[in-house]
Design a protein around this nucleic acid. Structure first.
Length: 464
RNA sequence: GGUCCCAUCGUCUAGAGGCCUAGGACACCACCCUCUCAAGGUGGCGACACGGGUUCGAAUCCCGUUGGGACUGCCA
């Protein structure tokens, strides 16, 4: 039996990191077995879905490096669902219901549990406008979900309401469309968030009613949660949930993939940074945890830093390009060659690519802004002035390489009783505008003698 | 409220009854390296929710308690 897995996002907003992990696991399963991975856009709710989101899903999936073999849109499959509804009607497992939410609530004593009270179950209502179709949950009975992650979950039918299968206008609801699609597409593994676990008995009931043979294998993934241990949601956690935001911030797909894969699964042998190939080879649903995992952006950043440092300089330069293109300098002042010269120093100093421009802006801005706090901290007239005077004189005449600049700066500092650590600070602020940044002497080499001297003069003038 | 799920350092996890004095990673702290900041190196802090069983032996199995979460739409 060939493995067939699917990811079935609903295009109501941008692609979610939780969806990313679900997609990743499904993709692992398909790729490790030569099976198929299906993208199914669940847009049966015409009201809420939006087309831009569909593109966003595809973009995010491609960015993650997840390719799919088949793609479906539920909105294009209405006739298939209509046929399924007919089969259910024919089998006598559904009934028409005219109750509104308010009707049901009015019938119940205050404080009673919500859920449909099966009022219309035996009324034998004919189809008519305003009447939805409900599934007649077999009573008595119980359904067992055999879940690879949670084990056997048994639910008594008394606790399953007669859920709506088709709207009054005849259109299919999530549960029906979802089940029919899995049946039609011969999906073998349903791997999704465990927020769907309570739906699964209904899914199984429908599967049987539709004449499905072997059920798919189920694996309900633990939720990815926020610091309050609530499931990550677009509304509550907008700042950390949207995949596109991470793309924009300069995370590497490989780092995101690796981090996501580790949320609920571990490759073993105390290893964390693992290649895609290793993950595909070693991933197993049986090894997935059952408890929720906090989405820790700090750890993600750390992973990203690791991945950035593992890049070759050429790869780093290429990955930085879009962020450089959006830098705060006029485009004509940017030089790829200059960036390439300092790139190895930048590479060990950023955790996300969006930090790159600020590391090198002093090279491409005519007048880099001077940070006020930095200026206040190191530009005290007593030592800064003589220091700047000293290096100005020495830099004007010396050989322009890092070793010489290092020696000259050291000497200028010693002359006024400063160690290099203290001595370099005013020079750094004068030239780069900041107290921190890439190594000073390498930076000066790349900047060039003329501009270095100009900036030292300007700072010196401002000092007096 | 009802149903269901979950419970190892702050966080992600290793752990399938003796290998556990509970391992790794992120974060944090200290030190080393060092022109700043990083990176790198070394070390440190830090957990089996609680109570009962079962067993010669339990983080691991069972029951209960407590605590968290999901679901509870003619949304998906």
């Amino acid at each position: 039996m060939t493995v067939r897995t699917r990811i079935s996002p609903s295009p109501t907003g941008y692609f979610h990191v939780g969806g990313g992990r679900t997609a990743l696991y499904n993709w692992f399963l398909a790729r490790q077995s030569g099976g198929a991975f299906i993208l199914r856009i669940e847009d049966t709710d015409q009201e809420r879905h939006n087309e831009e989101a569909v593109d966003g899903i595809r973009r995010a999936m491609r960015w993650l490096g997840l390719d799919w073999d088949e793609e479906y849109r539920q909105s294009e499959r209405a006739p298939v669902y209509a046929a399924a509804v007919d089969r259910l009607v024919g089998a006598g497992v559904v009934y028409n219901c005219e109750c509104t939410r308010d009707d049901v609530a009015a019938r119940k004593p205050p404080g009673a549990p919500p859920g449909y009270d099966r009022f219309c179950r035996d009324r034998g209502l004919d189809p008519a406008p305003g009447r939805a179709l409900r599934f007649k949950v077999p009573l008595p009975g119980s359904t067992t979900v055999q879940d690879l992650i949670h084990g056997d979950v048994v639910v008594d039918h008394d606790n399953i309401e007669d859920f709506v299968v088709a709207r009054a206008d005849g259109s299919a609801l999530f549960l029906l469309a979802n089940t029919v699609d899995d049946l039609d597409a011969h999906v073998t593994h349903v791997v999704r968030g465990d927020d769907h676990l309570p739906n699964t008995p209904k899914y199984q009931l429908l599967w049987d009613a539709l004449g499905g043979a072997d059920l798919p294998v189920f694996a309900h993934l633990p939720m990815i949660v926020n610091e309050k241990r609530q499931k990550l949601s677009k509304r509550r956690d907008t700042d950390k949930v949207v995949m596109e935001d991470y793309i924009a911030e300069g995370y590497l797909p490989a780092a995101m993939r690796n981090y996501l894969a580790l949320l609920g699964w571990a490759p073993g042998e105390n290893r964390e940074i693992v290649t895609l190939e290793e993950m595909v080879a070693q991933f197993a649903l049986a090894d997935v945890n059952s408890s929720p995992a906090f989405f820790d952006v700090k750890k993600l950043r750390s992973f990203n830093g690791d991945y950035i440092r593992a890049l070759s300089v050429e790869e780093f330069v290429a990955a930085s390009e879009p962020f450089l293109a959006a830098g705060p300098w006029p485009p004509d002042r940017f030089s790829a060659e200059t960036f390439r010269a300092i790139a190895p120093e930048v590479q060990t100093r950023v955790e996300v690519l969006s930090q790159v421009p600020a590391m090198v802006d002093f090279l491409f801005l005519a007048n880099p802004p001077v940070d006020d706090a930095a200026w206040a901290k190191v530009m005290n007239a007593d030592s800064a002035a003589p220091m700047l005077d000293g290096v100005a004189e020495r830099y004007a005449a010396c050989t322009w390489d890092a070793d010489t600049l290092h020696a000259e700066t050291l000497a200028a500092g010693e002359k006024i009783g400063l160690k290099l650590g203290k001595a370099q600070a005013p020079v750094r602020v004068a030239v780069t505008g900041r107290t921190v940044g890439p190594p000073l002497f390498e930076s000066l080499v790349v900047l060039g003698r003329d501009r270095t001297l100009e900036r030292i003069d300007a700072a010196r003038a401002r000092l007096s």
